[in-house]
Computed example of a mutant assay.
Amino acid sequence: MKHPYLFDEHEIFRKSLRRFLEKEAYPFYDEWENNRIIPRSFWEKMGKQGFLCPHLPEEYGGSETDWGYSVIINEELERVGSGLVGVGLHSDIAVPYIASYGTKAQKEKWLPGCTKGEIITAIAMTEPGTGSDLANISTTAFLDGDRYILNGQKTFITNGIHADLVIVVCKTNTKAVPKHKGISLLAVERNNPGFSRGRKLNKVGLHCQDTAELIFEDCEVPKENLIGEEGEGFLYLMEKLQQERLIVAIAAQVAAEEMVADTLEYVKNREAFGKAIGKFQNTQFKMAEMATEIEMGRTFLDSLIASHLAGEDIVTKVSMAKWKLTETARRISMECMQLHGGYGYMEEYKIARRYRDIPVASIYAGTNEVMKGIIAKRLGL
């Protein structure tokens, strides 16, 4: 049966990426987890091989590929470990704001470095007192001559330590009605005066992924670093959140597939009461249930990716996928750990790490409760 969006050239690319990751990622992942950070050298190696932002035009160092290549990159990085989520955020969430809404000068200044791994990006939405409620952010920026003066604090920022360029969601008009009309996007560079990092946050999971607090104290941002138009930031965010949530769904699906594959291998070989635990009916039923959910999830996800590649508005279904696939992955992590028995609680088994890493997927990119709200609204409720 013909795949809905992947062709022979995509699979050749996947094999090349897998060879790269088998050499440059898999052997070092445990070390990165222990060090609580992925080295910048890995980013540079990814860039050198053309695995960062491949969708960008050739003039900026990209390969002008279709988004199917980005799907493959996100899938294969997730197979290594969920802590590599920051690479997908850079290529497929943060950089597209510049590619879609940036000026020619902005693109020429930043995008070549983004494809090389010399410029690592982040997007700063969440604040200590504001999670999913973007319209009520308190970070402000006011124009003062040829610069914006930015004040506020962001938290839970993926790539927060490494980031050289941060797309900051802020209010340039605090009196706008409705409130979201006052939101704008500013690109803050590492050396902008008044920009500093707070703590590198100590998380339950995703240990090698650098997550941090960002602080802006009378931060001076050149006027030309405004992304798009003032007051249009919320619209830009809504336009890009479809792809962000799709990436989260992809990661959840792949994590679930990996957990089930690992557990299947384990139950075939682990013995109890004189036979492999895979011979017990309870184990067989659990594996059958999870395998079925995996197949259904993959079919739904692939159809959404194909629609996204075709440029269709799939916000409702993406919200469904983000909610359902992350919840499914979380449940599967518990089932698989249970089937591993006591060994599942040991760090040397992959399921222990997956069990830690999975839950946050139901929180970031909009909580699953927000996803259900979007779905309900689009159903006319």
Rank of each mutant, 00 (worst) to 15 (best):
P178I: 14
H180G: 05
K181W: 01
Q209V: 02
L201P: 00
N202T: 00
R147D: 05
T140R: 05
I167G: 01
R199S: 02
V204K: 08
N192T: 12
S196T: 01
L214A: 06
A141E: 09
V168D: 04
T211M: 09
D144Q: 14
N202A: 09
L185R: 01
I215A: 09
I215M: 11
A176K: 10
G182F: 11
A163W: 01
L201T: 07
E189L: 15
I149W: 04
S184G: 13
T155G: 15
S138D: 14
K200M: 14
F156E: 03
I149Q: 10
T140Y: 06
N159F: 02
L186Y: 00
L201I: 12
C208H: 09
H162G: 05
A163Q: 03
R199M: 11
G182T: 01
L165A: 10
L143Y: 02
N192Y: 05
T158P: 03
V204M: 13
N191R: 11
V166Y: 01
K154Y: 00
T174E: 09
D210T: 04
D146L: 13
G198Q: 01
A212D: 04
F142W: 05
T174C: 09
K203N: 11
K179A: 15
R190D: 03
A176L: 11
T139L: 06
T140D: 08
L214I: 12
N159C: 10
E213I: 10
S184M: 09
P178H: 14
K175H: 15
H162E: 10
S138G: 14
L143V: 15
N191T: 06
V188S: 05
R197T: 00
L214P: 04
C170L: 12
L214S: 04
V188G: 07
V166G: 02
L206K: 07
V168G: 08
C208N: 12
R199P: 02
V169D: 08
A176G: 08
K154R: 12
L143E: 13
A163S: 05
I167P: 00
D164V: 03
N151S: 15
V168R: 10
I149K: 10
D144H: 13
N192S: 14
L165Y: 09
E213G: 07
I183C: 13
T139M: 08
V169A: 11
G205D: 05
N191S: 08
I215V: 13
R199W: 04
R199G: 02
K200T: 02
G160S: 06
E213R: 07
F156S: 05
K175T: 15
L214K: 03
S138I: 14
K200C: 03
S196A: 13
R197Q: 07
R197P: 00
R199H: 04
V204H: 06
K154N: 04
L143S: 11
G160R: 01
F195C: 04
N192I: 05
D210F: 04
I183G: 12
N192A: 06
T155H: 07
I215W: 04
H162Y: 01
H162Q: 13
G152M: 02
K203R: 12
V177W: 12
